[in-house]
Each structure stands twice: as C-alpha cells, then as structure tokens.
Simulated assay, not measured.
Amino acid sequence: MKTTPEHNERVAKMTFASVFPHYITKVERKGRTKEELFQVIEWLTGFDEKKLQDLIDEKASFETFFNEATLNPNAVLITGVICGYRIEEIENPITRQVRYMDKLVDELANGKKMEKILRVG
C-alpha cells in the first residue's frame, strides 16, 4: 500500500501530544508500564522524559518531533506491517519514522521482550 502526499502531510501535522496518551493507554492495558514506553521512545529518538514533556507541552507536530530527534541507527531494523503499510516500503521519512514508533509501541503492548524491541544483538 502506497502512502499519498495527503496522507504524509496529515501524519506530519499530527501532534505527538495528541497520540501519546493513546500509546500509554495501549501499553498499560496490556500490562506494560509508562517507564517501558519512555525507554522505547528514548531508544528510537534520543529524547529523555524532560525533552518528551517539552515537546508535548509545545504541541510539536510529528514533523518537528522527528526533525529534532536523533534517530537510533538500528531503527532501520524495524520492519513489518503497521496500519496496513509495510514500514520498509514507506518512502516519506516522517511517515516512516511515525510508523517505526507505532510498531515499537505495538511490540511493547504485545509483550515482546525489551531486548527484541530495542533490536539488541
């Protein structure tokens, strides 16, 4: 499934603050913790809790969020299908990075071991 320019723009303009509570709900409902979610997001973006809170407070768009991130070099190892899109085939960098985050949150919620989620070894 190919993303459209309209889809990419909609994803880029969404705010991290609008999606983050859903991430928390999703992982906690499945018995994981907010701390584990922070660990996963920090691994992907390099943002600590304070920086994340700053981005939430300023209602940063995903475009701003990922432009300020230092993406983990192992993020390219995140593959598979999320929201009907094969991650490794998404050409738009911001859309692909948002889907990386979605995939990591899904893996956390689905009980995957942290070492696997963080692509260790």
Rank of each mutant, 00 (worst) to 15 (best):
residue 1 M to S: 11
residue 2 K to W: 12
residue 2 K to P: 01
residue 4 T to W: 08
residue 5 P to G: 08
residue 12 A to E: 10
residue 13 K to D: 14
residue 15 T to L: 04
residue 15 T to I: 06
residue 15 T to C: 12
residue 18 S to K: 15
residue 21 P to E: 09
residue 23 Y to F: 15
residue 26 K to D: 04
residue 29 R to C: 01
residue 33 T to N: 07
residue 33 T to C: 06
residue 35 E to P: 00
residue 35 E to W: 00
residue 35 E to F: 03
residue 36 E to V: 09
residue 37 L to W: 07
residue 41 I to N: 05
residue 43 W to T: 07
residue 43 W to G: 04
residue 45 T to H: 03
residue 48 D to I: 08
residue 49 E to D: 13
residue 50 K to D: 11
residue 51 K to A: 09
residue 51 K to P: 05
residue 52 L to C: 02
residue 53 Q to M: 12
residue 54 D to P: 05
residue 55 L to F: 15
residue 56 I to T: 13
residue 59 K to V: 12
residue 60 A to K: 14
residue 61 S to G: 02
residue 61 S to I: 03
residue 62 F to A: 05
residue 64 T to F: 01
residue 65 F to K: 04
residue 72 N to L: 04
residue 72 N to Q: 12
residue 74 N to W: 10
residue 76 V to I: 13
residue 77 L to I: 08
residue 79 T to D: 03
residue 80 G to Y: 02
residue 83 C to G: 00
residue 84 G to D: 04
residue 85 Y to S: 01
residue 88 E to S: 03
residue 88 E to T: 06
residue 89 E to V: 03
residue 89 E to L: 11
residue 91 E to C: 03
residue 91 E to H: 10
residue 94 I to R: 05
residue 96 R to P: 05
residue 98 V to P: 01
residue 102 D to V: 01
residue 102 D to W: 10
residue 103 K to I: 01
residue 103 K to C: 06
residue 103 K to N: 05
residue 105 V to E: 06
residue 105 V to M: 04
residue 107 E to I: 00
residue 107 E to F: 06
residue 108 L to D: 05
residue 109 A to E: 04
residue 111 G to P: 08
residue 112 K to P: 02
residue 118 L to H: 10
residue 119 R to Y: 12
residue 120 V to E: 13
